[in-house]
Design a protein around this nucleic acid. Sequence first.
DNA 1: GTAATAGTGTCTGTGAGACATTATGGC
DNA 2: GCCATAATGTCTCACAGACACTATTAC
Lengths: 259, 259
Amino acid sequence: MGASAAENGRAAAGEAEFLAAYDPREFPPVAVTVDIVLLTLRHGLLSVLLIRRRDHPYQGYWALPGGFADPDEDLEQAAQRELLEETGLSTFPGHLEQLRTYGRPERDPRMRVISVAYLGMVPGITRPEAGSDAAVARLWPVEDVLSDDEQVRPQLAFDHATIIEDGLERVRSKLEYTSLATAFVEEPFTIADLRRVYETVWGVELDYGNFRRKVLNTDGFVEPTGDTAPTGRGYADLYRAGRTTLLQPAMLRPDSRGR
Amino acid sequence: MGASAAENGRAAAGEAEFLAAYDPREFPPVAVTVDIVLLTLRHGLLSVLLIRRRDHPYQGYWALPGGFADPDEDLEQAAQRELLEETGLSTFPGHLEQLRTYGRPERDPRMRVISVAYLGMVPGITRPEAGSDAAVARLWPVEDVLSDDEQVRPQLAFDHATIIEDGLERVRSKLEYTSLATAFVEEPFTIADLRRVYETVWGVELDYGNFRRKVLNTDGFVEPTGDTAPTGRGYADLYRAGRTTLLQPAMLRPDSRGR
DNA sequence: GTAATAGTGTCTGTGAGACATTATGGC
DNA sequence: GCCATAATGTCTCACAGACACTATTAC
């Protein structure tokens, strides 16, 4: 694509340089990794997938799943590949998006490492135990991971605590203005299932009636399957995700009412 | 920091490896650059700073300001440094935030280049002409940059059209729920100045009375200086930015009303 | 029967959109 | 005088929060 002629004929000279590769000595040495904040609902708790490190530095510490991006691989592909490798799943069943890039010079003691973080959400079916190594991959409740209590909090490698915090903030705010909550539940789901997602991620209680009215009045958010499912006592209508991704108007988070 | 002992004594062996650097042959060769989408209001148009490329590839094409991140430099620092170098300014007068990272394997024909894009907003005082090279740095109205008309649209290098589009979408949505609009005007400013920011960035007309009520009722958005300024006909009250960065409730974009 | 949950409706307050009105100063 | 703009107020509708009520089923 760059081979098409440059505009207004000003780029006449030096066409031969075009295919010249960078001289590695010309630019600073750096490694690029991807890390994934994979969130799911497990036992009614919002949980994040962590891997226990085998190697130095931070040996024995808990880290986000991730690794180097291969040379011919898109970053999102790399994130997905690493995730499948470390969970043992064969296809990625949820939503994956880029979160943010972390590049503090001292974040890895060995050399300059730039990490492109991704954020993933999957229904609560993830079983890292089924994957490669049951002893090293685990789902941690985020309230424990970010707890002030050193007894319950895992030791996190690198700047992964910051990355997890940023991921959480992203998820919490995206529940407000997108239909992302549906990525946390398997289809078909009930209104109550969806409410549970909001309540768990936001850490609040929501009025069932108002929640239901809001979801059903926002068209494209969910669509009824026509079926119902027994729910212990009584039956509940079943839904699947609609085609709308942006909620209009947004779902309001109770916290944010009082500023 | 990584030097503190790993938890539960499980990390006993191999402490010597800790300081070992990566072997460069172990990880894929890659370069990391930062690119900046610098937006400002110029002659009533939302405009973006572009640099005309001197070298191949894309010689003569227009590109976002940017360059390699130095080894000991934070990514945001690198973005700010590049921006100052290419505009000739001595301090950065506005808001700068990370936008997104672009890493498609083919985005640079020479080698794998990962670009961490930043988004900057400055009041309409930027004069790239005062900077290093008047012939190569220019502010382009974004409506021209992203126009379908090949006569008015500059030829953009790499995937910079995508980056600019993403930056625009970010700015437009952040005007809704943050007080970011104040980054586009110099203090003190009038309510009408602020309204002009919204109208220009969103490309809509807003009712002055409703806009004023909204801004003044959202406490912390702006605070009155007590002064007034002549505005051609009559005088207008002057304000400066308040301490609130998150608008609660959000400013509604007229487009989005009808879905 | 009671308890728990799904589904539904009602009342009220907040806030946004669509105006109208008044004041000020340049022309 | 006219006109543009700043500042302010009014009316109405949409919608969220609070809460009441009914139906269904497990126990």
